[in-house]
Each structure stands twice: as structure tokens, then as C-alpha cells.
Design a protein around this nucleic acid. Sequence first.
DNA 1: ATGACTTTCACGGAAAGA
Length: 259
Amino acid sequence: MSWNVNSLRARLPRVLELLAAHQPDVVALQETKCSADNFPHEEIEHSGYTAIHHSGGQWAGVALLVREPLQAQAPLTRLPGDPVPAEARWCEATVAGTRFVSVYVPNGRSLESPEYRRKLAFMAAAAKRAAAIRSETGARGLVLGGDFNVAPADLDLRDHAAYVGATHVSEPERLALTELLEQGSLVDAFRHLHPGEEQFTWWDYRAGSFHKNIGMRIDLALVGSELQGGLMACGIDRDFRKGFKPSDHAPLLVWLGVG
DNA sequence: ATGACTTTCACGGAAAGA
């Protein structure tokens, strides 16, 4: 499972609700927005999970939650080659022989912004790391879950006019995502199982965007080619975008056999 | 419609998100 929670501490009741509802084996969280000192280990452990995390304080932050008795082994809480490593956007660990990554790709802000160049550099480093994971870690498989801040194709957003000349849809961003898929030998799980289906994972808090279903599919589960035979289902739980204090993203669920 | 909402830090309002 992968979910951009937009603050782990603000979202903790909904996160614990999600764990109880679906009992996922591995959860990749993004935008935890808490310092390492404030990470809510106690509440997560009380729900039967252990966490590894890369926390940067006020902004960004990622984590992997693993359901007991599974264990997160050989954790790495940084992306090698990330030009701004203090921003806390990458953590990985091996669970049951498979390497799992939680990733939060930078927003980019605008095509002219230095943040946009930083986004492309981050994605290039992610592609290089994905390729290196197989040769370096000895893991039998690779799964990246996260907020990639890229709508892979025009089908993955509703309001095309609003995104002319904007980030998330530009050619360089889409090429960088393609490069990550190719270098990591990865497949976009949702699109692989649901070709041609319009489903979103993010809706702006403003202007009733969720109610009108004006959103984007920017949260992805990228599954290694060696695991594609075990890829059974993939879906988005829209109920967690509703109700009390929702995130602006909905959780992405993947049913995957890694044995 | 130059907006709309939600979070953090800090205690007003800027910064960030997408």
C-alpha cells in the first residue's frame, strides 16, 4: 500500500483506521511532515507494525510500515545521488526478500523553477538507484510505492486546460518516469491491470475538486518485472479521501505475491 | 476569479503543496 498522508501526526487516526481495515503487509507513506523525534512509533507499534523512516522535519518525509512478524531489513534512509538529501524523500528496506521503497518526488512548482530541475535530477537518481538495487542488495524483487508527482499520461488527469504549461504533465517529467520504469525494469501496477481506466489518487482540497472528481493519478506502485506474475490486483480506496480530516491523496492498494 | 483548502511553525502569516 502507498499513501501520501499530508502529515502523519495530523492523519494518525486515519492511518490507524487504514491499517485495521486492510491489514497491509507493507505500507509506504509520504509527506509525513514530522521530525525524527516526533515520529509516532508508539501508536504504530500498538497497531502491530514497525516503521523505518526518513524524516526531514516540517516538510516531506517518508516511511515504510511493516506488519509484524515481518521485518524491515537492511534499511537505507536516503537516495544515493539525491542533490538535496536533507529533504527526506526516499527510504527503502528488504521485507521477505523483496526490496521496498517509499518515495516522494519533489513537486517542481513551475517549469521555470529551480525546483523543477531538482525534480528531474531526483528522478534521474531514482532511476539509477532502481537499477542498482538488484545488483547491489541481492533482493529477489523490487517494489516502489510513492507520490511521483507526475501524471504518466493524459488519461491520468481530468482538467487538461489547467495543466497546459504546468508541471506534472510535461514531456521531461514523463520521460524521466519512463526512464525510471526502463532502468528499474518496472511496471506501473495500476495501469498494467487497468489499461484505459480513468482513476485518480489526488484531488485538490479546494473548490470541491473531489466531489467533482477533478483529480490526477500521481501516486504509483512500480513493480519489478520479476514480480509481475504475482501481481493480482490494484485499486484506490477513495473512502480515505472522504470523512474526518482526510488527506488530499487516497491510498493505493496492491495485492502482490512476492514468494 | 489574481480564489477556493490544509498543513507546519508559532501565535500572524508565510511557505508549501499540485
